[in-house]
């Protein structure tokens, strides 16, 4: 693995992990408010909104923390990529239905529009992709 690839790998890993850890901490701080923001998407029954609000931030914190700690990189980045894909589908449905809501991606005080959040999520998906594949280069080189 070349030096620039190592720098790119660590940059992607730290960027992705840091963003999800930050987003998870903000959302975990006010679960009812986050439940209200999920409810604004009008996709799920109210009980599921609360359950998602209670659990999703901790999955983000855990996966983000693992990326920052350089542990279980491929499973964590794969999980975050899958979650980001789900977020993208939810945002597309909001845009298609013409709702003007705050995305809630970074807690109750995040006032990003769905369009802005969609662009950000596409960026996160790219970060997750490179984190996963650059980690593969490391693993292949080390033979582990």
């Amino acid at each position: 693995m070349k030096t620039w690839q190592q720098w790119a790998y660590h940059g992607c890993r730290l960027g992705l992990g840091g963003l999800f850890l930050y987003a998870g901490l903000l959302k975990a701080d006010d679960v009812p408010a986050f439940a209200g923001q999920i409810a604004a998407y009008r996709l799920l029954p109210y009980q599921v909104n609360y359950l998602l609000a209670a659990t999703l931030p901790y999955v983000e914190i855990l996966a983000g923390g693992l990326l920052l700690a350089n542990r279980h990189i491929r499973p964590a980045s794969l999980l975050l990529a899958a979650m980001t894909l789900v977020f993208i589908v939810a945002l597309l449905s909001v845009i298609a239905r013409g709702f003007e809501i705050d995305c809630g991606c970074f807690g109750p005080h995040d006032s990003s529009t769905p369009q802005q959040a969609l662009l950000r999520d596409l960026g996160l998906l790219v970060l997750a992709h490179f984190t996963f594949h650059l980690r593969n280069q490391c693993v292949a080189r080390k033979g582990v």
Binding site: A28, A54, Y58, V59, E60, R74, P75, A76, L79
Partner: peptide
């Protein structure tokens, strides 16, 4: 890798429900 991803997801959900 998939199994580990599912375990991370399960652990996160468990912690979230516990908290």
């Amino acid at each position: 890798i998939l199994l580990e991803a599912v375990l991370i997801l399960s652990l996160g959900i468990t912690v979230g429900l516990a908290v």
